[in-house]
Design a protein around this nucleic acid. Sequence first.
RNA 1: GCUCCCAUCGUCUAGAGGCCCAGGACACAGCCCUCUCAAGGCUGGUACGAGGGUUCGAAUCCCUCUGGGAGCGCCA
Length: 472
Amino acid sequence: MNGGPITRFAPSPTGALHPGNARTALFSFLLARGGGGRFLLRIEDTDVARDGEDHLAGQLADLEWLGMNWDAGPGREDGRGPYRQSGRAAIYREQYARLEESGLSYPCFCSAAELEVSRKTQLAAGQPPRYAGTCRGLDATARAARLASGRRPALRFTVPAGETIRFDDLVRGPQAIESASLGDFLIRRADGGAVFFFCNAVDDALMGVTQVLRGDDHLSNTPRQLLLLRALGLEAPRYGHLPLLLDPNGSPQSKRRGSVTVAELRSQGYLADAVLNYLLRLGHHGAPDGWIGREQMAGVFRPDHLGRAPARFDLAQLDHWQREAVRRLSAEQAADWLASEFPADWPRDQRLAAVALLKDNLRLPADAQSWFAVLDGELEPFAREDLAVVADAGAAFFGPALEAYAAIGPDLGRLAEELKRRTGRKGAALFRPLRIALTGRHDGPELAALLPAIPAPLVRGRFEKAAGMRMD
RNA sequence: GCUCCCAUCGUCUAGAGGCCCAGGACACAGCCCUCUCAAGGCUGGUACGAGGGUUCGAAUCCCUCUGGGAGCGCCA
């Protein structure tokens, strides 16, 4: 295993996958693929209270849907796993032991309440709320005494004093943080559970990850992990911190505010390739204009073309890629895409025919409903201006239309010719009333293709009805 | 509260001192094409958050402010 970058996506299954997470995953995935490396998936399920198997399953499904196939991860073990942190307790124990032996960590007996008081006091004094170091100086007897009183200690990392921690962020550039601004941070809970700072950093190192792309919110935590890894003698990956993805109104994405999830987009019928084309351009530039196929994405992605400013998730832009994606669907693919929308009794060939006809006029599967009704059902009520067009043409137009249709059939060219001859109408004046009477709307596929697709009795019925229409 | 990050059209962005009275894409408007919508072609409007510097010259460098965000958790 040499050469290419090893990247990972490390979600915690505490909720649904949001576009922001998906983008982070995508960039990591493309970074690995583009460099001939490996993409890992690690599940950070250390929060017993909030984690859920259903969330996990949902996120995995979303990732697979987007085509981000992980080289190693849950269900694809490779010897460096397990890839769920809940299964790595023994590994963490070993690392904790090393840290404790080296004297770079110490047991902390402070209770949540005590810490809270300390935090508030510091805040009130205009100080940043950092761990005060209460338990740092405890000697062996003091520790023994507390242990004897039944207190379960957590483990804290000893942050060295007076040091400047430097690292070169893949997207932010050189960073320098004073260790004095860091408090001794927790690395193991009192119940023995591993804490994010610890297991996240340790796992990246142990799994051989070379580049970590993650959210901006981890930027100021990075020095801690660097310190920790150094103390452990493990090699740190390079970090790149992506700006957050915002809701359309500019606020951070959150479940509370009802931010859209990947699962929602999928269930609405957005196509994975559309989402991918959009995500690739959010906070990342240099991709050529126009559609980019999945296979080309890795070649287009450039980590040095990552932006630093937060981007908003804009459905209008997604919709553009969605239309493009739908257009690129074959009839078979489009039929699958619309599978749940078709009238149940339509046979496959009818579905394919309908789809070929309508595809380019659809954005989401739900849009198909009214068109299926046009082909095989009741028209929706006409909009006022549409009704006016039909009423204006009236019986003088639809009477001949009925006769011509009976004589000629669904050949629009000949039908139009005949109608032009008999009514004197031509161009829009001829086609518009026809279209509206037939479909109940003024947009849609070519009439010449539409007409043969509508059963004759329906055509006759619609012409008859149109002949009697009046503005009310 | 303290520390850190960010700031160009409505949106995504290009721009690393003169090539920018700021370019592209999406969206929007108009025109062309056309039976309609879409697609396609053409045209148009709209942006460097504010104020100070530095410089012959600043969207680009510095400072302040404003706005937004993050971190400081026995959450991740």
